[in-house]
């Protein structure tokens, strides 16, 4: 009997898709070799279109609802733990390290799931202005966010490059290179967790192929880079990004309250008090 090998695809707008270019690149693991989508500029643009709608869809939900969807993701991973462990082992990790990493990833997701309906209480506040005014700093998600995963063979590090932005209400386009098989595997559980279409898109490929377009695309409101990229890429990203005053975070915090701060806008509203 012949084993069937899985074909991993990009995950865009709730669908598993190949690159429109038809191009792939290989990830050669211990046991298996995978040919995965080499995301093109066109694929990126399609993902942004999806993500723009995804931002609306994600924000239409209550915080309570979003919180449950993230929690659901942790439940899905828990149920498929063994398959993640064997995939990480195939990436060269020991069984124990693989198990620990998956457990940590689940803990991370549960932590952020519980933060969804609380973070604004920690980051927003009334401002004690010197006058008869009600003045509040309300917090909002910046919008469509592109995140570059670290190249570590780790589900935990991958979700830490996705959840901070997602937690505050951004829609996320996550891009992975060397660890892309893990990301594309994650998309299957994302697909089963009731995420609205476009709220989380997962792409694989080579960042240098699309960096100029990530920087230049005005609909990408924030770019968070969780991998130490080349000086050249940083320059291209910053220069193209400056054309639309894009927010760019290089190696942002991956834990605690500081991890979500890059993804929020502060909106301060004033109203006079009176009779």
């Amino acid at each position: 009997m012949t084993d069937i090998k899985k074909t991993y695809k990009n995950y865009v707008h709730g669908k598993f898709v190949r690159s429109e270019s038809g191009k792939v690149y290989s990830i050669d693991l211990k046991e298996e070799k995978y040919e995965i989508p080499l995301t093109s500029k066109k694929d990126l643009r399609d993902a942004v279109t999806s993500s723009k709608e995804g931002f609306k869809n994600w924000n239409q939900l209550t915080m309570y609802n979003r919180s449950q969807i993230l929690y659901r993701l942790s439940e899905m991973i828990e149920g498929n733990k063994d398959s993640y462990i064997s995939l990480l082992q195939d990436h060269g990790l020991s069984k124990l390290d693989s198990k620990n990493d998956i457990n940590h990833a689940i803990d991370t997701i549960v932590w952020y799931a519980g933060l969804v309906d609380k973070w604004e209480q920690l980051t927003g506040n009334l401002n004690p202005v010197a006058g008869e005014y009600f003045n509040i700093s309300h917090q909002e998600a910046i919008g469509v966010t592109f995140t570059l995963s670290p190249n570590s063979m780790s589900l935990n590090k991958l979700v830490k490059a996705i959840l901070p932005a997602l937690t505050v209400g951004c829609s996320v386009i996550n891009f992975s290179d060397k660890n892309a098989v893990i990301a594309l595997k994650l998309s299957e559980d994302v697909n089963n967790s009731d995420f609205p279409s476009g709220s989380l898109n997962l792409l694989s490929g080579k960042f240098e192929n699309i960096v100029e377009d990530v920087g230049g695309h005005v609909e990408i409101k924030h770019t968070a880079i969780y991998e130490d990229i080349s000086k050249k890429s940083k320059e291209v990203l910053g220069q193209k990004g400056s054309e639309s005053v894009k927010r760019i975070s290089l190696l942002p915090s991956t834990s605690g309250l500081s991890s979500i701060l890059p993804f929020i806008e502060t909106k301060t509203v004033w109203h006079p008090k009176g009779k």
Binding site: N127, P128, V129, A130, G131, Y133, N135, S137, S244, V245, E265, T266, K267, T268, V269, W270, H271, P272
Partner: peptide
């Protein structure tokens, strides 16, 4: 917009955050 004045305008205070969205 980063600052919204309702039934008032151009009010400022050191305790009140000021700054923009988008290309502001």
């Amino acid at each position: 917009a980063g600052v919204i004045w309702a039934n008032t305008f151009n009010k400022f205070d050191p305790a009140s955050p000021f700054g923009g969205y988008k290309e502001s």
